[in-house]
Write a protein that binds this DNA or RNA. Structure first.
Length: 825
RNA sequence: GCCGGAGUGGCGGAAUGGCAGACGCAGCCGACUUAAAAUCGGCGGCCGCAAGGCGUGGGGGUUCGAGUCCCUCCUCCGGCACCA
């Protein structure tokens, strides 16, 4: 650059223009998605945040990726909606109320205001006119209304259930909110315990099979696998084992291996099983009772530890094997879980590790009934009968039958004698949605002494949260101590009734917020025609940690609402992409308690929003994340500085060169190579390599200017293209330069540059020449050089000849455009 | 234990089975400057004076050719975990 142009170029100072452009975009409603836009719609969505207080670097990381894609799709000519809101019900607000005495609503509203302002500094194309806030009565009105619809459709029911209870947060948790080996609370980490409570459930298990079907949606394989495993479909049989006592129902078991029934040497009931008290003999009563009491007081940790030695008690009673009438002793043991299958098993110690360990400890018989076709049999451990080439042994008329065949044959025989059925069991349980806390949507149900649980009439919704309650956690909802809230009227008889004092799991709120964005101010939950216009979401992004929570619940909601006639599609999110997690500098998950939360404000103030966006996208693949280390942001700042420099208008310091034509072709080629590369990378969420390609183009443009091309049309084209390609990632600097160059406002409304392969084609290519796969020389040829000539040139190379040692080559492999490899004899 | 994902320079990372290390960071050298910062240019896997050799977690294999495909082992990260 000459000193003359340097003087003309204003100093690169993002602070001088970034906020101004954001205000202009806002004022112009540039990012508002219009319902009456005739172009193809494109609904891009990123998971809305919990308003915890301040945005951290992870929010920037998560939002920038989809913002880039949304912007590119907009430049491709689509009518793009990219909304944002707040998932604002939940425990932290209530804990803040307890700790600091502030009202949850006030605390939440303050956080939302702060975070909304911080969000705006990102320069994302969020359409804030569509914002939803789930703790707003105008929103939870409809969450409650949806609950009533689920109730009326038979998909919401109340049941006494042993539930996971967090003793610290004093709240019931969904199974999905209990994590890890020690069965701890997902929020506070405290080990959970079991309690029996009347709870509301959503019948998600009705949709277990449909939720296993991912055809037609483009979701990451790991997420699909996690949901599949979570749903845990197992095919097998239910089998009735009659008991010796008169007038008592048989013991029904679920098994995936009915073919091993002749190896059943004992039965095991879960300690909670209803038949335990009926069947226990007087002599065993005391031992059984004390075992049951002990099992029920155990924590989840103890109960489900796989390390622990298996324990149990014989209850004194016997069942009868329905196929051979053998007498089988009945035990109880806590390794049989009450909530899975039928809560009872036929124990086949020869072919199940757990039954094997139990039999070993209590000296129960072990009988092998499935053997390898080879005839060999292990004797010291449970032999996992799984393989295809196995046959039954010691199994009456089924002896010698292949195991795979026997599964069906034995079940069929049990069906024929009325003591069995083909059955499917799922790991998935119904979704427990009751929460004994304040800061959530009240469950819109009243209890009448005469008419039981009745939904609040729709015209009386919303059931508003009272604002003056005592927040100290007591194990019951704070709403229970609020007499004004508690008192209600039975919608059937008008008599006095009691309101439900629990609130809904916040995952209920987030199971339909994407529908509310389509018509956020509607006097309905959503306008059917608006949902028809925008739904389903075309691209959804967020963290993989929601694989079996939000992402499964939202699918369930859409399927249930479809069956209620309220929606006409099957899946909420057509495509899903997960961003990686930005970890603290200590490689640990960012959390306030660890003190490793990185705040972007300082970086934004120093380098500008564009630099922070680009830096985050540049550090690695977006789906990978990684530990936070801001040291590389200087490189991005320098890059944007070079863009600032080349993007200035009317550079006239052109110097005539005698090879201008070739230089111009090279610059045009670099431009079109960048168009192709960036387009491809952005669609694939490879923002890091897209930026690398933009850096290469910038370097090529800089070189061209140094070479004197500054006033050539091809130079202006290259710069314009650079700005257009960079605009989705760095919306401010590109708008500023676009404007300075006298181009029409806004750059974000321009068409994405068109790629011309002919202009990207190289004049000459460099071909590596290998001998036995090792690089020995290079050839520079034009793309149309005939293969024979290239091979002749390769063989003629001195370096190649040195390695051939005068011998003729054994083989010559020529991959056109790639390389030549010569194999020596 | 089961199911995923990942191991590449000092660092972040790149590479449809075809030149390993693109693009950056940090570093070193140089230009500009009284000087520094900023900016610009250059150098950079390891061993070796060189020729050359060795290099993508370890070991084996397929191939003319392997970071990439196959087998096996190790380490790290995520999910699930007595689910019959």
């Amino acid at each position: 650059m000459t000193s003359e142009t340097r003087a003309r170029t204003e100093r690169f100072d993002p602070a001088a223009y970034e906020a101004n452009w954001r205000e202009r975009w806002e004022r112009d409603g540039l990012y508002q998605a219009r319902d009456d836009d005739p172009r193809d719609k494109q609904y891009v969505l990123t998971m809305y945040p919990y308003p915890s207080g301040d945005l951290h670097i992870g929010h920037w990381y998560a939002a920038t990726g989809p913002d880039i894609v949304a912007r590119v799709r907009r430049m491709h000519g689509d009518n793009v909606m990219f909304p944002m809101g707040f998932d604002s019900f939940g425990l932290p607000a209530e804990n803040a109320a307890i700790d600091r005495g502030v009202d949850p609503a006030t605390w939440t509203a303050g956080n939302i205001d702060r975070m909304r302002a911080q969000f705006r500094t990102m320069g994302c194309m969020f359409d804030w006119t569509r914002e939803v806030v789930t703790s707003d009565p105008a929103y939870y009105h409809w969450t409650q209304w949806l609950f009533v619809q689920f109730f009326k459709a038979g998909l919401a029911y109340r049941a006494m259930a042993p539930v996971d209870w967090c003793p610290k947060d004093q709240v019931v948790l969904a199974r999905e909110q209990v994590e890890g080996v020690d069965r701890h609370c997902w929020r506070c980490g405290t080990p959970v315990i079991k309690r029996d409570l009347e709870q509301w459930f959503f019948r998600i298990t009705n949709y277990a099979d449909e939720l296993l079907d991912f055809s037609g949606i483009d979701w990451p394989e790991p997420i699909r696998l996690m949901q599949t495993n979570w749903i845990g479909r197992s095919e097998g049989a239910e089998i009735d084992f009659p008991v010796e006592a008169d007038g008592v129902d048989p013991i029904r078991v679920f098994t995936t291996r009915p073919d091993t029934i002749f190896g059943a040497t004992f039965m095991v009931l879960a300690p909670e099983h209803a038949l335990v008290s009926v069947l226990t003999t007087p002599e065993q009563r005391e031992a059984v009772d004390s075992y049951v009491v002990a099992a029920r007081s155990e924590t989840e940790i103890e109960r489900t530890s796989t390390e622990r030695e298996k324990t149990g008690v014989f209850i004194g009673a016997y069942a009868v094997n329905p196929l051979n009438n053998e007498r089988i002793p009945i035990w109880i043991a806590d390794y049989v879980l009450p909530g899975y299958g039928t809560g009872a098993i036929m124990a086949v110690p020869a072919h199940d590790e757990r039954d094997f360990a139990f039999a070993h400890r209590y000296d129960l018989p072990i009988r092998y009934v499935v053997v390898p076709a080879s005839g060999e049999l292990p004797t010291s451990e449970a032999f996992a009968a799984h393989e295809a080439d196995e046959v039954l042994a010691d199994s009456g008329e089924f002896g010698g039958m292949p195991a795979s065949e026997a599964i069906g044959a034995i079940t069929q025989q049990l069906v024929d004698i009325g003591l069995g059925s083909f059955a499917v069991s799922y790991r998935l349980r119904d979704w427990l949605i009751s929460r004994q806390r304040y800061w959530g949507a009240p469950i819109p149900i009243v209890y009448c002494p005469d008419h039981g649980a009745q939904p609040v009439p729709e015209e009386q919704l919303p059931v508003l949260l009272p604002s003056d309650v005592d927040f100290a956690p007591t194990g019951v909802s704070p709403l229970q101590s609020d007499a004004g809230f508690l008192a209600a009227e039975c919608p059937v008889c008008g008599g006095p009734a009691r309101r439900d004092t629990d609130t809904m799991d916040t995952f209920v709120d987030s199971s339909w917020y994407f529908l509310r964005y389509t018509s956020p101010h509607s006097a309905l939950a959503w306008e059917p025609e608006k949902a028809k216009l925008w739904m389903p979401v075309d691209l959804y992004t967020g963290g993989a940690e929601h694989a079996v929570l939000h992402l499964m619940y939202a699918r369930f909601f859409v399927k249930a609402l479809r069956d209620m006639g309220m929606l006409d599609f099957d899946e909420p999110f057509l495509a899903l992409r997960n961003q990686g997690q930005i970890l603290g500098a200590d490689h640990q998950r960012m959390s306030k308690s660890r003190g490793n939360v990185a705040n972007p404000d300082e970086l934004v103030a120093r380098y500008g929003s564009d630099a922070v966006r680009c830096f985050l996208m540049f550090i690695g693949p977006w789906d990978q994340g990684g530990p936070w280390n801001p040291s590389g942001i200087d490189g991005i700042h320098r890059f944007l500085g070079r863009v600032w420099s080349v993007g200035q208008p009317s550079l006239t310091d052109a110097v005539a060169t005698n090879d201008a034509d070739e230089l111009e072709r090279a610059l045009r080629r670099a431009t079109h190579v960048a168009i192709a590369g960036v387009s491809e990378d952005v669609e694939a969420f490879r923002f890091n390599t897209a930026l690398a390609k933009l850096m290469e183009l910038t370097n090529a443009v800089t070189r061209a200017r140094e070479a004197g091309l500054g006033s050539a049309p091809v130079y202006a084209d290259a710069v314009d293209t650079l700005l257009l390609l960079l605009a989705p990632m760095a919306p401010h600097i590109t708008e500023e330069l676009w404007s300075r160059r006298g181009k029409p406002y806004s750059i974000h409304q321009q068409a994405w540059p068109a790629y011309d392969p002919a202009l990207a084609a190289a004049d000459t290519i460099e071909l590596p020449v290998q001998v036995n796969g090792k690089l020995r020389d290079r050839l520079v040829v034009t793309p149309d050089t005939p293969a024979e000539e290239i091979e002749k040139m390769a063989l003629g190379s001195e370096k190649v000849q040195a390695h051939l040692g005068g011998r003729p080559p054994k083989r010559v492999i020529h991959v056109p455009g790639k390389l030549v490899n010569i194999v020596t004899p």
